[in-house]
Amino acid sequence: MTHIPIPSRVAIVTGGSGGIGRAVAERLARDGVAVLVHYSGSADKAKEIVESIAAGGGQATAFGGDVADADAMAAMFRHATDAFGGIDVVAHTAGIMPLAPIAQMDLDTFDRIQRTNVRGTFVVNQLAARQLRPGGAIINFSTSVTRLQMPTYGPYAASKGAVEAMTLILARELRGRDITVNAVAPGPTATPLFFEGKTEQVINHIASLNPMERLGTPDDIAEVTAFLAGPGRWVNGQVLYANGGAA
């Protein structure tokens, strides 16, 4: 019988089958963290990531569910605890980003954005606040668009403003627990979600807005997340803008 060691740290990465989520899951695994890779509709991608982490000597498992569904997320937290013995880090990268001018977006789409991005963050953070072990870290995801104020991003930016508010307040509510709560606010990042519906001209213009004159990469964002998940214990109740200096 093969003995599977109990990992020293365990992370849940929501949206772990997406561009940034995958990079975060794989980066944490390289630090020796056991990872639950959450997915919404991409079971095959999540399985591939789990297999990739295992091939590199890490520990990982996958779990699917709607982040705004409290029962599904409670089951995900139970699965992580059953698989690895506890939970230390929650990196909540899951989110959706339909774009349209405020005057043109239909309310059903607006409600869907808020359900996934706001309610989903609340559900996941509530479970994390109840279950993370001392020394843990909650890392939410906002967006630099809250500063860049780009047209068509209004409903999405509004949802992320709510995420930032929850993050800063939860950090203070967890006084005495030795759990940090921060948000990462990426700038434009080269993921399938970002490229969707954009022309090459628009992409090049957006890439030129920061002094680095390029898009961010998922690995850029994963490095910031790994810092907050591990050595960055004195950073708490903050929003870190990872955008190459765009704003």
Rank of each mutant, 00 (worst) to 15 (best):
M1Y: 11
I4R: 13
R9N: 03
I12K: 06
T14A: 04
T14F: 05
T14D: 05
G15P: 08
G16K: 14
G16L: 13
S17Q: 08
I20F: 03
V24I: 15
V24A: 07
V24G: 05
L28Q: 05
L28C: 06
A29P: 07
D31A: 15
V33M: 07
A34Y: 12
V35I: 10
L36F: 09
L36G: 06
V37Y: 15
G41Y: 07
G41H: 12
S42L: 01
S42V: 00
V50N: 11
V50W: 08
S52M: 08
A55W: 01
G56I: 01
G57P: 13
G57R: 13
G57E: 10
G58N: 05
A60R: 08
T61G: 10
G65F: 01
D66H: 11
D66C: 07
A70I: 07
A72V: 11
M73R: 10
A75I: 03
A75D: 14
F77P: 10
F77D: 09
R78T: 12
A80M: 12
T81F: 03
T81Y: 03
G86D: 12
I87K: 09
I87G: 02
D88T: 11
V90Y: 10
A91K: 11
I96S: 07
M97Y: 14
P98V: 01
L99F: 14
A100E: 15
L107H: 13
L107E: 14
T109A: 06
T109S: 09
T109M: 10
Q114I: 15
T116K: 04
T116V: 15
V118G: 02
V118T: 10
R119A: 04
R119H: 05
G120H: 09
F122R: 05
V123I: 07
V123Q: 01
V123P: 04
V124R: 08
N125L: 11
L127N: 03
R130H: 04
R130L: 13
R130V: 05
Q131K: 07
L132G: 00
I139C: 08
F141M: 14
T143L: 06
T143C: 04
P151F: 01
T152Y: 00
Y153L: 06
Y153G: 01
Y153T: 15
A158N: 05
S159Y: 09
K160I: 09
V163H: 06
V163T: 13
A165H: 04
M166P: 06
M166T: 07
L168D: 02
A171C: 07
R172Y: 00
L174P: 08
L174Q: 06
G176V: 04
T180P: 04
P188H: 12
A190H: 11
A190L: 07
T191M: 09
T191N: 02
P192Y: 13
L193V: 11
F194A: 05
F195Q: 10
F195V: 11
Q201H: 11
I206C: 00
M212V: 12
R214L: 10
R214V: 06
L215G: 11
P218C: 09
E223M: 06
A229D: 04
G230N: 15
W234G: 06
N236W: 04
G237D: 06
Q238P: 00
L240E: 00
Y241P: 05
A242I: 07
